[in-house]
């Protein structure tokens, strides 16, 4: 596989080491992890539990700073940034979809989707308008003023997708987005992520070990023991029993 031209690279890590604790309890989560994702693609990170998927995702998202190595996201080096700079970077460029939805239960569906806009300093009215439009796109028209807990799991994850995309981030990060959902709902959610998030300028990284959704990926990076083992374009090439 040839290295893509620099302007198409969205995410690149080189020689990233990440360990937790020290001495007896030291755990190495990433060992010289080299990872690359391109603009316009949906790439999946797969691998057995504990192989470092979430850790790598956190490093790319700028919520974890690795001990060694370089991290570059949309031309911006994240290693060496201060906490404040990382926060500002996430605010501007990142959208998150979490495994456990992480919707704020005491806020309405609409208010949950407004959060990224308000954090960016948008006015209340602008945030309402954009969030309403986004909720219509994920098919939740009419549920805007209800509480998230009144929705089904699939609907809640759709709220989360709306929240992750409402501020049009360059990088969308999804950690196990379907693991709390049944097969059909999971497929619907992935279809929605694909339809709504793919754009030539955006990169989507999805961590999963749910092989039923592999088919939604452009490429799949397989992880093992804290490093990328190989990258494939066809899910059929993966040894799914291994996952």
């Amino acid at each position: 596989m040839s290295t893509p031209p620099a302007q198409t690279v969205a995410v690149r890590t080189r020689g990233v080491d990440m360990f937790f604790g020290d001495g007896e309890t030291k755990v190495t989560a990433l060992k010289q992890a080299d990872f690359e994702a391109n603009r316009g693609e949906l790439i999946m990170l797969v691998g057995p539990s504990g192989c470092g998927k979430t850790t790598l995702l956190s490093v790319i998202a700028g919520t974890l700073t690795p001990q060694t190595g370089t991290v570059e996201v949309f031309g911006q080096r994240l290693d060496g940034l201060s906490q404040e700079e990382l926060t500002a970077f996430r605010r501007k460029h990142l959208g998150f979809v979490f495994q456990s939805f992480n919707l704020i239960p005491t806020l309405s569906v609409l208010e949950n989707v407004m959060v990224p806009l308000l954090i960016q300093g948008a006015s209340h009215d602008v945030a309402v308008t954009k969030a309403l439009a986004m909720l219509a796109k994920v098919g939740l028209k009419g549920r805007e003023y209800g509480q998230p807990n009144a929705l089904s799991g699939g609907q809640q994850q759709r709220v989360a997708i709306a929240r992750a995309l409402v501020h049009e981030p360059s990088l969308l990060i999804c950690d196990e987005p379907t693991s709390a959902l049944d097969k059909d709902t999971g497929a619907q959610i992935m279809q929605m992520v694909r339809d709504l998030s793919r754009s030539p300028e955006r990169c989507v990284v999805v961590v999963t070990h749910d092989h039923r959704i592999f088919r939604f990926a452009d490429r799949i990076a397989e992880m093992e023991d804290g490093r990328i083992r190989r990258v494939v374009e066809d899910a059929g090439l993966l040894d799914t029993n291994h996952l």
Binding site: A61, T63, E84, T87, A88, F89, R90, R91, K92, L94, F96, F98, N102, I104, V115, P116, I119, Q120
Partner: peptide, 9 residues
């Protein structure tokens, strides 16, 4: 924590 991850200072 989620709000913080999303980029709230």
């Amino acid at each position: 924590a989620a709000i913080k991850a999303m980029g709230a200072g």
